[in-house]
Amino acid sequence: MKKSKVVSLTEAMQEVHDGDCIAMGAVVEDRRPVAAACELIRQGKKNLIILAECSLSEDILVGGGCVSAYRGTYTAIGAFGISPCTKRFAEEGKVVVDDIGHIDVCLGALATMAGAPFIASRTTLGTDVLNPAFDNVAKIRNMARNPETLPAKKYVLIEDPFYGMGTVQLHPAMKFDVFINHVQYAGEEGTVRIDGSLVFDHFAVHGAKKVIVTAEQVVPEEYLRRDPNRNQIPCTSVDMVVEVPWGGHPGQVYNFYDMDIPFMMDYVNKAKTDEGFKKWADEWIFDVKNHEGYLNKLGAARLEKLRALPPYGYRPRTKGGAK
């Protein structure tokens, strides 16, 4: 009998331990596991180390006091400005930051997927990413529940012995205790089909000890297996599957719904202060109790106006939508 990996959101998020190194799938405001982030706050997680980026879903975690450090490449939310909580916490020294390049994140996840401890790169040469004064890796390593999830060094410079490329950076693998990925479709055994950008999810799912998938729809595994070339994550790399319709709201999920712009603007506006964030979190995380409460509060009519239209996969702005 094939094992079903479908569990509840509460159950899945219990797999995240205080002090874990986690990453959340996709980037900025597209296909983000926002419902999962809200549940982590409800469960009162502490001292999480965020890898890759601190954008929409991570910023909520930072505001909720779940995060102690971040290693990555981006602390903003697209057109909505700098991630408000991340900015505040970093400026107050409440979140330790270690900046690396975007390709560094990709190469780190790629190396982990390949089971390689490091990969050579010319990325970030000449920048302050390599400045030892800004290197917080050792500090963050001490904060991790599993220090060996993080590298012993940020990078090492050596001379390329093969192609005469000169001094290159040895960039360490990027590993995760837990990777949480929001996707369009998952089968009950964990096979996943993504529409739109894969970002680094197709690397990162192979670099994590535990992979949790939240999906707009859980569909029969057999349906996805009719076209294996169209799937991006194999069942063999997934531990848990949760069905969470609208689980990426207020971000967009290609072919399902468009972005809820007023909701995003309200968030970045409120989250600029501690009190503002607390008010927002009370309203949208704690008072609603769970994801269903969140959806009911948003209201069916509001959600309908966000629904993507074929053939676009989004909601053309001239034909109605989120405004």
Binding site: T112, E221, P228, N231, P234, C235, T236
Partner: peptide, 22 residues
């Protein structure tokens, strides 16, 4: 081997699980 499998990628995706200890 493709027909009915969960995922059909290529050699990197086929061999890397070995190195990852899976």
């Amino acid at each position: 081997l493709t027909y009915g499998s969960s995922w059909q990628m290529g050699d990197p995706e086929g061999l890397f699980p070995l190195v990852r200890g899976e």
